[in-house]
């Protein structure tokens, strides 16, 4: 499932580019906090370990001066604006640092009335790419370590944001990986494809990192937590695991913004984003819909139209 067969190719991205984005984020964040425009900046701070960075809810100018952007800034921070994280932001407006893929999530969340555009200042990153996994931190960004989503990215340039941080460097030509993997799986006979997913889901330990890291998994009552009656077996066993992941993929169809955080967060390396991308492909084919940068209140699966495709009803 990974690109181990290929020889890692450097991306050739100028390291100075990341410093430029960092400076732009810092000055925007400092200004917003100093002028009282926002109470919190949701951004990235460096971690203790070499080359690492993680989410931070920055409320002081002193902290804002330490904000960074690097290939280790893998997180989609938009989840901190959802009701699942209610109460962690200081009262007042918030600013958020967002890559193009995160902007799609922000648009989706606005469409679902999680927050209003006017309540959030968006610092959009002109993004050249991030690591596939936080464990790549401190290593060069290569075709092998860059996230699969970045290899097929169409949203390098942020749109509709309040501040654009950084200037895009010359971008390397990267070969798609995820699309190829989806095509490979689709070409398998059904029994083999089922065996593939059965093997993947059997590794699941139900830590629910996929759910918790997902900006769209903000349900107050998740069906997998229900026990009266139980909807999905809560114990980590293959049948319940399969039910859980398929149900989740269905619930995200037409909503998932493709940030691939579920896959990145999975400690068992289950390629969950393949399910989400496959569902996105379905939405594209059936309804010509794809997650975009503009909030939409009514998406294909939240409305009924007489001309909807009904060929699946047999």
């Amino acid at each position: 499932m990974n690109a181990k067969a290929q020889k890692p190719k450097g991306t050739g991205i100028d390291p100075g580019y990341y410093d430029g984005v960092t400076q732009a984020i810092r000055s925007a964040a400092v200004k917003l906090l100093q002028e009282g425009e926002v109470a919190t900046v949701v951004g990235y701070l460096p971690g203790r370990r070499n080359g690492t960075a993680g989410p931070a809810l920055v409320t002081s100018v002193e902290q804002a001066q330490k904000l960074v952007f690097s290939p280790a800034c893998v997180n989609n921070l938009s989840l901190y604006l959802t009701k699942a994280k209610k109460g962690v932001l200081k009262p007042g407006r918030a600013a958020i640092v967002a890559k193009g893929c995160d902007l799609r999530a922000l648009a989706g969340l606005m469409g679902e009335a999680q927050f209003k555009r006017e309540d959030v200042t968006i610092i959009g990153i002109a993004c050249a790419g991030v690591y596939r996994s936080a464990t790549n931190a401190g290593t060069p960004l290569t075709e092998a370590t860059i996230a699969w989503k970045c290899r097929e990215c169409t949203v390098h340039t942020p749109e509709g944001v309040d501040v654009v941080a950084g200037t895009l460097p010359e971008l390397p030509e990267l070969t798609p990986a995820e699309a190829l993997e989806i095509a490979r799986l689709e070409a398998l006979p059904q029994a083999e494809r089922w065996a593939y997913w059965h093997e993947q889901f059997s590794r699941c330990i139900r830590c629910l990192a996929c759910r918790q890291v997902c900006p769209f998994c903000y349900c107050e009552q998740c069906m997998c937590d229900r026990n009266r009656p139980q909807a999905v077996e809560g114990s980590p066993r293959p049948a319940g695991n399969t039910a859980w992941h398929i149900t989740r993929a269905m619930h995200l169809a037409g909503r998932c913004a493709g940030c691939a955080e579920c896959e990145r967060a999975c400690p068992m390396d289950i390629p969950l984003n393949l399910l989400n991308r496959r569902m996105a492909k379905e939405l594209k084919e059936l309804y010509d819909y794809e997650a975009g940068m503009v909030p939409q209140e009514k998406t294909p699966l939240t409305q009924y139209r007489e001309d909807d495709d009904q060929s699946f009803i047999k």
């Binding site: 993680g54 994280k85 962690v88 330990i205 139900r206 830590c207 990192a209 918790q212």
Partner: peptide, 13 residues
């Protein structure tokens, strides 16, 4: 820990 997302990855492994 305000940034903690409340999963069980840390505990399970």
């Amino acid at each position: 820990a305000d940034i903690c997302i409340g999963c069980g990855a840390c505990a399970f492994i």
